[in-house]
Structures are given as C-alpha cells and as structure tokens.
Design a protein around this nucleic acid. Structure first.
Length: 332
DNA sequence: TATGCGTGGAG
DNA sequence: TCTCCAAGCAT
C-alpha cells in the first residue's frame, strides 16, 4: 500500500522544514505557547519576512505572557506600528491580560478560541503546534494545497466547508502540528499561487490538479470588487522641534494608533478637506478596501486632543505607515 | 454570508 | 506601474 499523504508530507518536512525563530525542529518538544501564539497572531495575513523583526523585538522586550500583560497598551500599539491590522495588537493586549488572569495558557482548541484575536485558524494552530493536540488547521496555504490535491472546483469562500472536510481526512492523529506547518511550508515554497513547482513536490503523485494539467487554476476564487479612491487631508503642526500628534480612537481604521490630525477621511468616506495651509505634498496609500490620496498641509494651531512629540524621536511614536509617509514628506 | 480592517513583496 | 495576495478575525 502506498504511503499516506500525511506520512509522505511529514517525511518531506523532516528533511526540508524552514528554520524559523518561533518554531521547534521537526519532532522536537513543542515551543513555548506564548511564542507560538504571538507568532501566529503576527502571521495572520502577513508574510514571514515582515513578521521576523517584529517577533524578535516583541520577544526581547516582553519575553513572556506576564511581561506583555503588564505592558501599557500604547507601548504595544507603538511596537506594532507598520505591521498592519491593528486590531491584532489591541486584542493581543486583551488576550495577554486574560491569560495572566487565568494563570496559565488555555491548552485546548475550544478554550483558546475564546481568547480575543484567536479565530478558527489560530486556535487550531496553537492547539496543534504548542500543545501537541490533533486539530484541523486551515489557512490560505492549506486551502490552496487541498483545493489542488482534490480539484475542488467551487469558488472560495463557498468551498471552505469542503476544504475543511478534506483537510480533516488527511490530518494525522500524531504530529498534527508538524503536519500543519508542513502544509504551510509546502504552500509557500512549492505549491505557490502562480507557478507551482510540481516537479519538486512530494505530493505530486497524489495531486488531482497536477494530473489534470493546470494546477494553478485552483483554488477558484470569486471575483473581487474594485477599490474606490478616497481623498483626505492631514495636518502637520510643528513648533520648537516638536510635532502635534493625536491618538486615533476606537476600533476602526488605525484605531489606537498615534497619528497626524486629519479631516475625517477614514470615517466619512472623503474628508471635509476645507483647511487652508501651506501644501506640503500628496501621499498615496492603498488600504484593503480603498485607495487614499492624502494632502498634507502645514497648520499653526493645534487640533483636537493630542501631545507634542519631539521630532528627533519621531521613530518611537509608532506612526502607522500612512502617517509615517506623511511625516517623511513634511520633513523632506 | 459580506464587509471592514494594513502593509510590503512578487511577478 | 499595477494587480494580487499573505500563517484571518470580528461583526
């Protein structure tokens, strides 16, 4: 009888696993759940290359859950600046406090799922990778690999139920964490979106899409909408080597992050855009669901509640990328 | 189920 | 330059 998909993949993983800062070698005892959790949250919709320096910075500054739970939220938000999806940082702080309160990291998928910021994927990944439990881990890599293995022709996201069932069928009872990481390594290195490298793939013999001849056709995806263009203004208010920064409120766009004052473009669609001032230039920035053209204007009077921030420490303010671009333009 | 939520790299 | 999209979650 031919080796199972999971056995074949685990053999491949034992030989080819990537060495990553948050990962234990194949077959080794599981790494610290705190590090697994932190890495998994950082990796949500974010590339390994982008995460690495943030993971090193966070684990140096806050080596364990207790340290993170004791950190002021604004420090964590500032340290997250540039990584995107800032609700992750807000939920990170909440989850750290909840775990500190519990006294220990929840050790099963159901309990993990209750922590803020842990959805179906992350709860399963932490349960499998940090606690050695069998869990069905489905991320975008797994969706792609499984769609190809079984030529699942229904478009995403409608095909998620079938993909999950198929993933469950091929997930082993032992080493489910290594299996999940192997699937993700396979998806990122060989079974890639555009140019799958089937000649190097350990699962090509079992792959229906490979047999069909056009594996890149999978997964089929529903067409996406065009992004609208919004326009807005931000204000550069400088005095005696300092700049006026506000902290954005709430859980919406860039919520909790330090920022330049603006005209409300994020909440209203387009901003009010009626301020007069020296035009410093235009910043273009793409968000997930719209593109923004932001005019940066010099103003003299402070706007809203905020704080004077020294220009020579502006790097430490933790400005999200949009406002970091605006500041760069103002200081050029 | 659909929408809001960032950013940087690949092709 | 432009389009796609990555170890998704919350509502």
């Amino acid at each position: 009888m031919a080796a199972s998909i999971s056995d074949t993949l685990l053999d491949w993983y034992d030989a080819h696993a990537r060495d990553l800062p948050w990962r234990a070698p194949p077959g080794a005892p599981p790494p610290d759940p705190y590090r697994v959790w932190l890495s998994e949250v950082m990796l949500q919709q974010t590339t390994v290359a982008a995460v690495k320096p943030y993971f090193e910075a966070f684990t140096s500054r806050w080596p364990d859950m207790q340290a993170l739970a004791a950190a002021p939220e604004e420090d964590v938000m500032a340290a997250w600046a540039g990584l995107g999806y800032y609700s992750r940082a807000r939920n990170l702080v909440k989850a750290a406090k909840a775990v500190a309160e519990l006294g220990a990291f929840p050790a099963d998928e159901e309990a993990l799922r209750k922590l803020p910021g842990l959805g179906a994927y992350t709860a399963a990944a932490v349960a499998a990778i940090a606690f050695g439990q069998r869990a069905v881990v489905v991320d975008a890599n797994v969706e792609r690999v499984v769609s190809r293995l079984f030529t699942i022709a229904d478009p995403l996201p409608g095909s998620r139920k079938e993909i999950r069932e198929r993933t469950d069928e091929i997930t082993p009872e032992e080493r489910a964490g290594d299996f999940a990481q192997a699937m993700m390594d396979l998806g990122s290195s060989l079974c890639t979106v555009r140019d799958p490298k089937c000649l190097l793939c350990p699962l090509s013999h079992a792959c229906a899409a490979r047999a069909e001849g056009e594996p890149a056709r999978y997964p089929v995806k529903a067409p996406k909408k065009a992004k609208p263009l919004r326009q807005g203004q931000a204000y550069w208010i400088e005095r005696e080597g300092q700049v006026w920064l506000v902290r954005r409120e709430g859980t919406g766009m860039l919520g909790g992050m330090r920022a330049l004052p603006d005209d409300g473009w994020s909440a209203r669609g387009d901003g009010v855009g009626n301020a007069i001032g020296e035009a410093l230039g235009l910043v273009r920035h793409g968000f997930t669901h719209f593109d923004l053209e932001l005019s940066v204007l010099r103003q003299e009077e402070t706007l809203g509640e905020g704080e004077w921030w020294p220009l020579d420490r502006l790097e430490d303010a933790g400005l999200p990328t949009l406002f970091a671009k605006a500041a760069r333009l103002a200081l050029a």
